[in-house]
């Protein structure tokens, strides 16, 4: 390649760093293939080096939960041409946003250490609550194939897209037996696709880790979870909060 390589950095905020781990699972072919075109200048899970230089693409994992994180986010934004919030924590607030509906989580999780100052945080918010984000890729963790496609699009200056159809589409395309036809329930009906629907294929209901489609039919979801999925009303109502708490908050 005669063209200079695109400088890419990975940053993490409130998250499990599972999305970075998932990237290390990309495999030699894809990862080394991408490395022909990109130069990774910061990636905490795999290297010690960090950078304060200009970056072409900044991938940010994790949600924005502390005011203390704002300057670091702003510094990344100022140095990066493209900012991608990747993984559900960064894209939507993700599973962290569950706490937005609770008050006792500090005591519950940390017990006698609950009042330690480094545990101060506010509601879990997507990265876009702090800085301008060019693209948000949800997923818990992100999908490897989607990541590779999005890097490819960004390299070519083609605005990447994230599907706005439900996971049902991807289950059907790969002929997964529907959870509802196995006496189970599933959120795939309203969940944003793009993951390739691996969970139902493994016999696990979709938990909508990528959030919901733009126009989810939520009244029908509640009805289906109770009538076809056999959930109680309380469980049907709280069920879809796991990764979509912030969506509910907004409505």
């Amino acid at each position: 390649m005669s063209k200079p390589k695109v400088k890419v950095a990975f940053f993490d905020f409130a998250s499990c760093e599972g999305c970075q781990i998932e990237l290390t699972n990309l495999g030699d072919t894809v990862f080394l293939g991408l490395l022909e075109h990109i130069e990774i200048v910061e990636f905490r899970e795999v290297m010690k080096e960090t950078t304060s230089q200009r970056i072409d693409i900044a991938f940010i994992e994790g949600s924005f939960t502390r005011e203390a994180d704002r300057p670091r986010l702003e510094s990344i934004r100022a140095r990066a041409n493209v900012v991608v919030a990747y993984g559900s924590c960064a894209a939507t607030g993700g599973i962290n946003a569950l706490k937005n509906h609770q008050t006792d989580y500090r005591e519950f999780v940390y017990g006698k250490d609950a009042e330690m100052p480094h545990l101060d945080s506010f509601q879990a918010q997507p990265i876009s609550a702090a800085i301008q984000v060019d693209l948000a890729i949800p997923g818990c963790p992100i999908d490897q194939a989607e990541f590779a496609r999005i890097v490819s699009d960004v390299l070519h200056g083609k605005a990447p897209t994230v599907p706005n159809y439900p996971v049902c589409v991807e289950c059907k395309l790969r002929e997964t037996v529907c959870r509802y036809q196995s006496g189970d329930h599933c959120l795939g009906l309203v969940a944003r696709a793009g993951c390739g629907a691996p969970c139902p294929a493994d016999g696990v209901p979709c938990e909508a880790c990528r959030g919901m489609v733009d126009s989810p039919n939520q009244p029908a979801l509640l009805q289906v979870l109770m009538e076809k999925g056999g959930l109680s009303q309380l469980r049907a109502e709280t069920k879809s909060r796991l990764w979509t708490a912030r969506f509910r908050n907004e409505e």
Binding site: Y165, P166, C168, V169, A220, Q223
Partner: peptide
């Protein structure tokens, strides 16, 4: 009314 626009 109960359509999820899932395209199944």
């Amino acid at each position: 009314e109960k359509c999820f626009s899932c395209g199944t």
